[in-house]
Amino acid sequence: MSLLELLGYFNYWVFAIVLSIGLYTVIAKVNLVKKLIGLSIFQSAVFLMYITMDKVEGGTAPIIQKGVENQIFSNPIPQVLILTAIVVGVSTLALGLAIVVRIKEAYGTIEENEILDAD
């Protein structure tokens, strides 16, 4: 595999790196809000992957126009899918933050180790 080919997968490299950063943050941080930030990064990486794969070289938005034949356009399905996934991600984040608020109310802290000590 030549260097050029490797660079050609640029988006996928970014996907893998961002994914790893997100996952690492989720696992390594003890602060619950930081964990949620990590989770969001982790999910965003996946959005990037979906968006990357639907791109067709030279393609435009998939809008059918009169008089324009044989137009190349990008695959709309992954975009639709990822729109849904983003909604899911946002709701997860919202719920996660709500739980963090409740944890803060109940325990007075959002550091995981302190919560474990409290019980």
Partner: peptide
């Protein structure tokens, strides 16, 4: 239940 569910949320989402 709150820390437990937070853990569940993180792992479930992953």
């Amino acid at each position: 239940a709150l820390p437990s569910v937070f853990k569940y949320l993180i792992m479930g989402t992953i």
